[in-house]
């Protein structure tokens, strides 16, 4: 069963490589012309095209690209002439730091709030949480970010408006760089996670077995932690995975606003310069990350469920 999930994910990954390659074909244009400029001689252009395999039919280029990808050869950036891997490594690290910090803050908090809202269903607390999450879900992330900049950077001068610094010599620096991007991203991610966690726990609490446990005299805390939660784990893990995949999209806007030197920022620049190898690689990384999240959520759900485990 798990093998089936992993196999399915690999198939999707393969299909994805087709989609990503097709997208880059869409970008069209002539990279060779873009590199050499208007005044290049036809001979030079042809030579460069051959060197870049641009003269080959697209399916050959696809196979060449895919082969390179599998060998770990990501190609060379058209603009900077540097290997893509060299360009990517520090950016990837930065993005992972941002995403990791966000996840570390938002997952426990969101689960706590989601479960709390479900347990106190209908209470004032539940309604406040529900209103707040609707509010945050409904507002674009750039609005949240700009509002925060307005308040904390422009008005209060507590934090810098930009997070481009890579100088982490003291804890103070780390806090200054990460606080605002992390809070913005966490807001977006948590709203989703809270709503889905609440729904999953509510479903479990409505079940006959929780009623039966109540009628056994099981105290409320044990009812939630011992009976409802084990059944909600599958949907909750799924919610976490889906919410963290939202992070993959949200990170683009946040990195642009705060001028944070991550992968997404690189991607936006690559699109404007039509730097194909870079775009293809980043797109693959993001999509693969999404697949990994969703597939591992599936696997955790299977492992947690005795009905699926004991076949």
């Amino acid at each position: 069963m798990i093998a089936k999930r992993v196999g399915g994910a690999l198939l999707t990954l393969f299909l994805l490589s087709l989609v990503v390659f097709a997208m880059s074909l869409l970008m069209g244009g002539d990279a060779a012309e873009a590199m050499l400029g208007q005044n290049a001689t036809p001979e030079a252009l042809a030579g460069l095209r051959a060197a870049m395999h641009l003269d080959q039919p697209s399916w050959q280029r696809y196979l060449g690209w895919l082969g390179g990808l599998l060998r770990g050869d990501l190609g060379v950036s058209l603009i900077t002439k540097l290997p893509v891997s060299t360009l990517l490594a520090p950016r990837l690290l930065a993005s992972l730091q941002l995403a990791g910090l966000t996840a570390a803050v938002s997952v426990p908090l969101a689960l706590f709030l989601g479960i709390l809202a479900a347990v106190r269903r209908g209470s004032l607390l539940d309604r406040v949480i529900s209103m707040a999450t609707i509010g945050v879900v409904s507002v674009p992330e750039f609005v949240i970010a700009t509002l925060m900049v307005l308040i904390f950077a422009v008005r209060l001068h507590w934090l810098p408006a930009l997070s481009s610094s890579r100088d982490f010599s003291s804890l103070h620096d780390v806090v200054r760089v990460f606080t605002m991007p992390v809070i913005c991203l966490a807001c977006v991610v948590m709203a989703q996670m809270i709503r889905m966690t609440r729904a999953a726990v509510c479903d479990a609490l409505d079940s006959s077995y929780v009623e039966a446990a109540r009628l056994k005299g099981v105290p409320p805390r044990r009812l939630v932690l011992g009976h409802a939660l084990p059944n909600a784990i599958g949907p909750i893990v799924n919610a976490v995975a889906l919410s963290l995949s939202v992070l993959l999209g949200g990170v683009i806007v946040i990195e642009v606003i705060f001028n944070y030197p991550g992968v997404a920022r690189l991607m936006v620049d690559a699109v404007s310069t039509r730097d194909l190898p870079l775009i293809q690689t980043v797109a693959m990384i993001f999509s693969a990350a999404y697949l990994m999240l969703v597939t591992s959520a599936d696997i955790v759900a299977i492992l947690c469920n005795p009905r699926l485990r004991h076949r």
């Binding site: 999209g249 039509r274 999404y290």
Partner: peptide
């Protein structure tokens, strides 16, 4: 299902970025 699964694996903003960036 496979087709739409694949499509939804590309983060939405990135998809928009690339397609609109090129077209």
């Amino acid at each position: 299902s496979k087709l739409f699964d694949t499509l939804s694996a590309v983060p939405s903003l990135m998809f928009g970025l690339v397609v609109i960036g090129s077209l």
